[in-house]
Design a protein around this nucleic acid. Structure first.
Lengths: 335, 335
DNA sequence: TAAATCGGCGAAAACGATTAAGTGAAGTTA
DNA sequence: TAACTTCACTTAATCGTTTTCGCCGATTTA
């Protein structure tokens, strides 16, 4: 390991000068600075992040907190895209990312403690059980935090516009002539509540009556529960002409049931997905679905978090609403 | 931040004693040690990983190197499951994980430099362009490395048994009476080469002739290219009775084409996937597919890497072959 | 000409932990 | 009883950086 001391020795200056030169301080002569920079390069010098973190109390490291219940967290295309763009933006801004968990080795700790232990400059929170006290502790701490798709007091949140999306979907389906629209929603979360309320409101405004039996609960990203919900909807006296699914994967579960019953999409029944995963656009017929701007969400989360870290004085908790767009495929029939 | 010094002051001992007590050294009296531990807990003490890393030259941090071409890297269910189990096992062993990239902020660096900069104790490599010189530099360095699904000299590799899997698939399809088996393979990688060679060999051993036109190239995880390949296969004079897909998602692309042509699976044509993603088991008919033990692969990668880190003397590069299993669904018809 | 300013650099003290090398008291051995 | 161990703890150096002062010579100002 070549250190600043080594460079100092070679250049005939003090380590302090090397540090300043490498960090671009103004009180070093142009010539000296240049000389130091080139020899640093020649000697293959690399800063030691641990030493720097120790001294400056800044790690240039962001924590990512998400919990993988159903062990499909990372596999969830929406979230993994968010994470990926978060990572890309964070790296562009000079930050690395580390996963935050409870209990590291034999050391029991909660999320807050883990974040402190790793000197995380900030943490992004997504896809967790927001009622977990350990999450609350982190959110209420002095660590900069940005949450995704969930709003906390005095914290910046990046949220996909779940209200507008449902409005867009309902309007489109309405324009296509449908009046019996069923909605299979995901498990009870803030996101689900918003979507459901927006769905109801949009329908009401269009003068569409939504009987309770047309609202069905399922689980996100779980083809089986949607398949079941689909079966229930199909067995109704008052059968819907269009079914909205909680996400594209859930639609695929529902599709199995539709096929089993010999129903063709969209001729016999119309469907709409949510998320706009790659796969949905490769299917034939192409799925009509709402594409969230997951890339934008991750990018903005990183940008906001870094901004809060680097300009704490000017920090104001913000809610950033990121809008997506309806991808119109061929799964909603004009009636 | 409460430090060891604070604890030392409160307990009336020296910081050294606190350090030893907290790290379970034997030369501290039982009573003193217990006292130190409880006051540490009471004061909310947390070790400072940066200070520890600086002094011990160990960070308890593992690097993860993967590159997200097509930006679906993380979204790939196989890889994200591998990564997740890697993470879980690493955390169980006391290690955190950080992503390794080129260029962090304005600082240009390659993978090796990044790993050193972050003091990574070891790195796991997956899904990268193995011909990248930056990857070679890391692999040839003194940093402990474990690779997944790719073998390097003198490095431990965890590999999914791509040879046996193809044997299992061919044998099953053969038993079901198929003699015209087509194979759509992914882009040209080591994994693809192995699968393809194994496919050819297994067919030969069964006495099945495989004309070149039954071997088609597509891209992994890309429904569109498989859809195209499927169309080509279906247009052949000598049409196959069973098509093997490079992965489950590719099958879904192919399925669109089959449906477009009015072909029913498995009555009109049989298909086999690869990976055994959750979705494949929710489809109806249930997809017959080969499930790789991705959870086992991630877990073993972490275990091997940590073992190499903690017992460098006994390190011997190993190739761990992880076998999966054929999930028999209803997409291969008995003929 | 004396005083003030300034540019360029170094000395040294941290940051929080680990650890080799002691130290002193008590117990053990010959 | 003298010498040796053992036990329980302390001292102090060190890891690689950063940063606050302060220094010194040169230039500008009064």
């Amino acid at each position: 390991m070549v250190t600043m001391k080594d460079i100092a020795a070679k250049c005939g200056v003090s380590p302090a000068t090397v540090s300043k030169a490498l960090n671009g301080h103004s009180d070093i002569g142009a010539e000296t600075a240049e000389n130091i920079r080139t020899t640093a390069r020649e000697m293959g010098y690399l800063p030691n992040s641990a030493a720097r973190a120790l001294k400056t109390n800044r790690s240039l490291n962001l924590g990512v907190l998400f919990v993988d219940k159903t062990s499909s967290g990372l596999a969830h295309e929406y979230f993994s895209t968010v994470l990926n763009s978060f990572k890309v933006e964070a790296e562009r801004l000079g930050y690395d990312i580390t996963f935050i968990s409870k209990d590291i080795g034999n050391f029991k700790m909660d999320y807050y403690e883990h974040a402190r232990y790793r000197n995380c400059d900030g943490v992004v929170i997504a896809l967790v059980d927001y009622s977990d006290p350990a999450v609350s502790r982190l959110v209420e701490s002095d660590v900069p935090v940005v949450t995704i798709d969930h709003v906390f007091n005095n914290r910046t949140a990046i949220i996909s516009d779940n209200v507008q999306s449902m409005v867009d979907i309902v309007e489109y389906v309405y324009e296509m002539g449908h009046r019996k629209i069923a909605y299979i929603h995901g498990e009870d979360t803030l996101v689900t509540k918003k979507r459901l309320a927006s769905f109801r409101k949009a329908c009401m405004e269009k003068g569409i009556d939504v009987p309770d039996e047309h609202i069905r609960a399922a689980l996100y990203h779980d083809p089986k529960s949607s398949s079941l919900a689909t079966r229930e909807l199909l067995s109704l006296q008052n059968r819907p002409t269009c079914i909205l699914y909680p996400d594209d994967f859930s639609f695929l579960g529902g599709m199995s049931e539709l096929e089993r019953q010999g129903l063709k999409v969209p001729d016999d029944i119309s469907v709409v997905g949510y998320d706009g995963v790659l796969l949905s656009q490769a299917l034939r017929p192409r799925l009509t679905t709402f594409r969230q701007d997951s890339e934008g969400i991750g990018r903005r989360a990183a940008a906001k978090l870094v901004d809060e870290i680097e300009n704490p004085k000017m920090f104001v908790p913000t809610q950033v609403l990121v809008s997506g767009s309806l991808l119109i495929g061929n799964t909603v029939k004009k009636v």
